[in-house]
């Protein structure tokens, strides 16, 4: 299985490649990709340097252009595809059907990967994207159980990449409008969920409050560690109880599932986190490289090294990890 790591900057890209990533994915400095953060991502020059570095070390580079352009943005998104192709990326990660068609017609030689934002959760959906846009690979949303992933993989007409580690999206990606309901930006429109511009922290008599466009997302008592106010991970009230009504602030970690993912025929595991620092990327990439190497060594039985989980937990939201929807009971 291929290890696909995030790169939000050139140092992060180098950290990923130096620590064992088989491929890195990056985006341009605008809302054409789903991790639009201030100070993050690549201009053409930096992207060119990154691609050259990765290629010199035998790693591939994917470019994410995985938001949905509206009429005003169409030319910008189209030109992002042209720029990615001209820079020599190995694949473009796309979600919008209009853009997929454009890329397939204009740059047929550049592989197309279906982004997780394309919301394909069945092999019939994958066939649609394969038949119409000849995609090479698809990234599955983080909502399927391991048995469901197996079912998709059995009949999939394309390579599959699944999320292995990082922030956990609990909603089917590409069809979640919660962020634009509270703020005016969503992953689909602006490449942003719970955007930083709308976040406000406030120390009050009742505790530290995190707000998103003035909406109270969470309030932390003394000794509680506060997390970024991603709106689905806040504490809310339902019928008089206050709890994490949608999802706890935890990270996805599928180390334990590696043998099964390999046996199912998954082609690549993906690490989330283009917003993360180079040292985070280095630690995560190194850990997953070791795990994949042990898996591939074919030694009888794959045992997760407790040190790996310790490293990954230390890098996780709230220090907690879960295998999420892969485990049916999580649902």
């Amino acid at each position: 299985m291929e290890l696909v790591c995030p790169a939000g900057s050139l140092p992060a890209l180098k950290a990923a490649v130096d620590n064992g990533a088989d491929a890195v994915y990056l985006g341009f400095k605008d809302s054409t990709n789903a991790r639009q953060f201030a100070g993050l991502n690549f201009n053409d020059k930096r992207a060119g340097e990154g691609i050259e570095y990765a290629h010199s070390k035998g790693a591939r580079v994917f470019c994410a252009i995985n938001t949905y352009p509206q009429p005003d943005g169409w030319e910008t998104w189209k030109s992002a595809i042209d720029r990615a192709a001209a820079l020599g990326v190995d694949a473009i990660i796309l979600a919008d059907m209009g853009l997929l068609e454009y890329a397939a017609n204009k740059h047929p030689q550049v592989h197309r990967h279906l982004s997780v934002q394309g919301s394909a959760t069945s092999y019939e959906a994958l066939r649609f994207y394969k038949d119409n846009f000849d995609i090479r690979r698809a990234v599955l949303p983080r909502v399927l159980s391991i048995d469901q992933v197996r079912g998709v993989a059995k009949h999939s007409p394309v390579e599959l990449e699944v999320f292995a580690f990082g922030s956990l999206c609990i909603m089917a990606e590409g069809r979640c409008y919660l962020s634009s309901y509270l703020t005016d930006e969503s992953p689909n429109t602006r490449g942003a969920c719970s955007p930083a511009k709308a976040v406000r922290w406030q120390e009050t008599a009742e505790g530290l409050e995190s707000r998103l466009n003035d909406v109270l997302i969470d309030r932390y008592g003394k000794g509680e560690s506060a997390g970024y106010p991603t709106l689905c991970k806040g504490r809310f009230e339902v019928e008089g109880s206050v709890y994490h009504a949608i999802e706890e602030p935890v990270s996805l970690n599928t180390l334990d599932l590696l043998p099964e993912l390999k046996e199912i025929g998954i082609s690549a595991v993906k690490i989330e986190g283009r917003q993360r620092s180079p040292s985070y990327i280095a630690d995560v990439a190194r850990t997953w490289r070791q795990a994949l190497n042990r898996l591939d060594s074919g030694a009888d039985g794959f045992l997760v090294d407790p040190a790996w989980n310790k490293t990954l937990s230390g890098l996780s939201e709230g220090g907690l990890t879960t295998i999420g929807a892969y485990h049916r009971k999580w649902k």
């Binding site: 159980s145 089917a172 409008y177 919660l178 009504a245 949608i246 929807a325």
Partner: peptide, 14 residues
Amino acid sequence: LPLAWSSRCFTARH
């Protein structure tokens, strides 16, 4: 407005 779909059931979770 229908805003999001998940494999998790939030009513059962409640």
